[in-house]
Design a protein around this nucleic acid. Structure first.
Length: 479
RNA sequence: GCCCCCAUCGUCUAGCGGCCUAGGACGCCGGCCUCUCACGCCGGAAACCGGGGUUCGAGUCCCCGUGGGGGCACCA
């Protein structure tokens, strides 16, 4: 194998790591891993005004969280000025670029005019072969001398051949009048000098590609392969944004999503392998290929992501779950130290709620019932289930529970069933009131499990509290 | 406005000329299981954008229309 696959992910640190960007990163990473290639991380921070180190950190964190490790970089465009300058000189030397003295305001005016006349706004080329001497004391921008005849065809790995008339191509500015290079120029220089073999990016760059092709050619670099993936749209078919809910990796992480769920969801969004929905990391790498990518825009569906998250939550090892849970505990009113203090209990608590939770936030809330110092009765639940006629049932149960030699699930079940039988009831008639007495709610894991997890002391004292509560109720209703 | 791309259930998709009475998944609706809630299981409603061709035969190929998306900066 002479040519190693080299791909890159090139985000700009001008905002949080967006879901759409993550998908691009994921596809590039999978492509690299599938082909045993190299995944390069490049930070496109040429827009110094909007780029911040905080955003860059968020991007790196997000990638690490998702397990998308890079082999080279992070490179920063802000650190490559001399490379761009040198390439600009090459273009100047070959007259592939010419100085343009048009003012930004003039250009803007002409653009609007063209748009108003229904034409493609395009530089009119007035500086292209400027006969008169340049205005004194003004630094020019440098424009690419784009071919005006013929057409450019690229063969996109996802979309097939795409032809653009060169007359549609603008004389792009390569360097601004302040000397700084522009995007289309630096992208080509970077990709070429970094030896990128496959440019896999969003559909929004498709129209830039023929322009970039000419830059490659003028610079004498070989062309990479291009693959343009469709964009992610919001449920209203507009651009996916904050309006549609969480849109960045940081947010998803904060609201209790698992990285494998996000990755699995994003992978299936626009890529498929028959009817398969769930992919392990290894399967993703083994099966991934650009051929199976969809060409049409895809609509983001948070419901399915939630389902996948619930799925991965259910699959997770309880031990890992406990570790993942810690950051979410305080918000649910559980002290992390206390949670850590009894590992068996923590494990049991997590296990008891894992198939009932769709996010780590829900899991933490569920688990919190085993760590609360007091029960707070849900008003309606108490009114319905903690009725005075159940007092004898509770008393008998307390007696049986206290007599138990071992307070494990099997023994607890036997005790409950004993009460059920002696009163000729169905289990539900005993379990539901107990559930309310112990948790304050009508929903919880299985009652035997809940009792075992809470421990005899807590269970008995709460049952007694419930009895007291019911007696109080009886007293007030008769008086 | 101009250029480019795209088009199967609400959504993600399978389908690469006969296997399609169009399959799967999420969501939705019903049922089963059951100490509650979930999980799980069973069942249901739900799509080939329209019109022309090509062909013995079209969801699959071609053209036009329509619809959707993207792009047209001294932003990236």
């Amino acid at each position: 194998m002479t040519d190693t696959v080299r791909v890159r992910f090139a985000p700009s640190p001008t905002g949080p790591l967006h879901i759409g960007s993550v998908r691009t990163a994921l596809f590039n990473w999978l492509f690299a891993r599938h082909h045993g290639g190299v995944f390069i991380l490049r930070i496109e921070d040429t827009d110094i005004a909007r780029s911040t180190p905080e955003y860059e950190d968020a991007i790196l964190d997000g990638l690490i969280w998702l397990g998308l490790d890079w082999d080279e970089g992070p490179f920063r465009q802000s650190e490559r000025d001399d490379i761009y300058a040198e390439h600009l000189e090459r273009l100047k030397a070959a007259s592939n670029v010419y100085p343009c003295y048009c003012l930004p305001e003039e250009l803007e005016a002409r653009r609007k005019e063209a748009l108003a006349k229904g034409e493609t706004p395009r530089y009119d080329g007035r500086c292209r072969d400027r006969p008169d001497p340049p205005p004194a004391g003004q630094e020019p921008a440098w424009r690419l001398r784009m071919p005006q005849e013929g057409a450019t065809t690229i063969t996109d790995l996802i979309r097939g051949p795409i032809t653009t008339e060169n007359s549609q191509l603008d004389d792009l500015i390569m360097a601004r009048s302040d000397g700084t290079p522009t995007y289309n120029f630096v992208v080509v220089v970077d990709d070429a000098t970094m030896g990128v073999t496959h440019v896999i990016r969003g559909d929004d760059h498709l129209a830039n590609t023929p322009k970039q092709v000419h830059i490659y050619e003028m610079l004498g670099y070989p062309l990479p392969s291009f693959a343009h993936q469709s964009l992610i749209l919001g449920p209203d078919k507009g651009k996916l944004s904050k309006r549609h809910g969480a849109a960045s990796v940081t947010e998803y992480r904060a609201i209790g999503y698992l990285s494998e769920a996000l990755a699995n969801y994003l992978l299936r969004l626009g890529w498929s392998h028959g009817d398969q929905e769930i992919f392990s990391r290894k399967e993703m790498i083994d099966l991934f290929g650009l051929e199976a990518m969809t060409k049409s825009p895809v609509i983001y569906n948070p419901e399915k992501l939630l389902w996948l998250n619930a799925h991965y939550l259910r699959q997770a090892e309880p031990k890992r779950l406990c570790a993942l849970l810690e950051p979410f505990l305080p918000a649910a009113g559980v002290g992390v130290e206390r949670f850590r203090a009894d590992e068996a209990k923590a494990l049991g608590a997590a296990r008891s709620w894992q198939e009932r939770s769709r996010t780590l936030v829900e899991l933490a809330e569920g688990v919190s019932m085993f760590y609360a110092d007091e029960v707070v009765y849900d008003e309606e639940a108490a009114r319905k289930f903690l009725t005075p006629e159940r007092i004898p049932i509770f008393e008998e149960l307390i007696g049986r529970l206290e007599a138990l030699e071992s307070f494990d699930e099997a023994a607890i079940e036997a005790a409950l069933m004993g009460v059920v039988e002696s009163h000729g009831l169905k289990l539900g008639k005993v379990a539901q009131p107990c559930r309310v007495a112990l948790t304050g709610k009508t929903v919880s894991p299985g009652i035997f499990e809940v009792m075992a997890l809470m421990g005899r002391e807590v269970v008995v004292s709460r049952l007694r509290e419930a009895v007291a509560w019911m007696e109080q109720r009886k007293a007030t209703s008769t008086s």
